[in-house]
Nucleic acid binder design. Structure first.
Lengths: 138, 138
DNA sequence: CGGTTACATCACAAACATGTGATGTTCTGA
DNA sequence: TCAGAACATCACATGTTTGTGATGTAACCG
């Protein structure tokens, strides 16, 4: 459902959300702890920095930190920079036009899934995700 | 959400469901009418034949036809032969274990989407899709 | 029976996603 | 100030998906 790269970005963001306020984390450590190839994670973190989700600091005490508190970032914000360019609005059955007023035979059923996905990404913050997992670990 | 190839398979199956009982359709025509490259569609149809969704007939009057009435095929059956091998059960946050009893922070919210998708694919037949679109065109 | 029409199959190419390795650049702190 | 540690960047390798072209093979029909 999400590409590998999108997943990796999410893992990194959740990782940084978990240790928000605890200083910067090194790319190498994030990569190790999330099970992502180190150099690949570097590139992902760099893109997240360009997108304003994280900030990077160079030098001996450098690393990455979340650019704002976890409750200010929706998952959509984290994932969007890595989405492929294909239009999410393409008709499943290949019709040139397919909308609520002029739907293909699968439109309504398919729409349920698209909307569930959007509501997950646009309605969930990093804080939601780490709270859930922490209430869980207690 | 679905790969391109899975979509193409669905388009072909829906196309053949629409003209079920009207004889075989040629691969070239299916490709043209669904907007899929002809040779690529050929391979997809061949795999659908191997999966038992369609039957092929060679020779001058040959082509493809659905192997049974449209109401006997769920979309899952059409799409499954083309699904990538990646495990659908992988944890979104990369945890080694992630289940209902030991969930990651995103598990429950993510599960909603996975189940909506499964219920769409496993609960919708080709007949459902073409009926919808025909009641619509009337 | 032979040619045409269709599917079947093989070989390959382009595009993209994913991953690896090496090198440059900036900052910190002794 | 300078060496080391960290991010930044470049170049490239690999694998998969998607797409193209050519050729083989079976069936129909005149």
């Amino acid at each position: 459902m999400l590409s590998r790269t999108e997943e990796y970005a999410l893992r990194a963001a959740v990782y940084l959300a978990r240790q928000y306020g605890d200083g910067a984390a090194r790319a190498k450590d994030i990569a190790r702890d999330t099970g992502v190839p180190a150099n690949y994670m570097s590139k992902i973190l760099h893109q997240l920095a360009k997108a304003g989700v994280v900030v990077s600091e160079r030098g001996r005490t450098g690393g990455f930190r979340l650019a704002a508190p976890p409750n200010e970032f929706f998952l959509a914000t984290v994932v969007r920079p890595f989405e492929p360019q294909v239009e999410r609005t393409r008709c499943l059955l290949g019709r040139p036009e397919c909308s609520d007023v002029n739907p293909c035979g699968a439109h309504d059923r398919w729409k349920v899934i698209k909307e569930a996905t959007l509501s997950f990404l646009d309605g969930t913050t990093l804080a939601d995700v780490i709270e859930d997992s922490e209430s869980d670990a207690s």
